[in-house]
């Protein structure tokens, strides 16, 4: 029989860059953080899954933990600096990362068969190169590189202003009409990175 009470303290957190939330892929457990606690026989990290708004949560025992990003995981510079987290009751932590690129001023709209969008892509890490800039559409608010019914590449694959435009063909229109909701967001992937960074999600229908 287990003679411990279950853990009660809630650690919640947000991945940020310059105080802005970093949006990521939320499906397939794509982004994970690791919590380590010293002084116990078991040395396996606790995996903490990050949702598509860059938020995460873990229910823990009170104590001191070390929070790190997973090796080479995420649209940011792979820095495995430890963030010390003191958990006592419910706690909140911001995890600062340095993304390769950021997306600002995203817009997406759908008028009839005309899908348009725009955003500004800024390079944060001077050595980073763009892999893709794409607009993804899906029938639920879970929308990313893998989970989408439609994707459009940016007219230019370059830092700065990017625009998207697509005239939907009959099949695509029928597809979107058949969905209860239509959601979109923009993703930017860096060459060599395992994940893309995303804008917030737009509801188009």
């Amino acid at each position: 029989m287990d003679n411990y009470d279950p853990p009660k303290s809630q650690l919640s957190g947000q991945i940020v860059y310059n105080d802005q939330p970093v949006h990521v892929k939320g499906t397939y457990g794509a982004i994970q953080l690791q919590l380590y606690q010293d002084g116990y026989a078991l040395k396996n990290p606790i995996s903490v899954f990050v949702d598509q708004n860059g938020k995460f949560e873990a229910t823990l025992f009170d104590g001191t933990y070390k929070l790190v990003t997973r090796d080479k995981n995420g649209p940011w510079v792979n820095s495995r600096d430890t963030t010390i987290v003191n958990v006592k009751g419910n706690s909140f932590v911001e995890l600062e990362v340095t993304p390769y690129f950021t997306i600002s001023n995203p817009t997406v709209s759908l008028n009839g068969a005309q899908l348009t969008g725009s955003c500004t892509v800024d390079k944060i890490v001077s050595t980073a190169n763009l892999d893709f800039i794409k607009l993804f559409i899906n029938g639920t608010s879970f929308v990313d590189e893998n989970i989408n019914v439609l994707s459009v590449s940016s007219n230019a694959l370059a830092v700065g202003n990017n625009t998207f435009s697509l005239t939907l063909n009959a099949d695509q229109q029928a597809k979107l009409n058949s969905l209860k909701g239509v959601y979109a967001r923009i993703g930017v992937k860096t060459q060599g990175a395992d994940q893309a960074i995303y804008s917030e999600v737009f509801q188009l229908k």
């Binding site: 397939y28 040395k43 080479k72 893998n146 395992d194």
Partner: peptide, 19 residues
């Protein structure tokens, strides 16, 4: 769908072996 991710190119080293 089959979802092969970057981390799947090499299996993980088991923590028990490291212990």
């Amino acid at each position: 769908p089959r979802n092969f991710q970057m981390r799947n190119y090499y299996n993980f080293i088991d923590q028990d072996w490291i212990n």
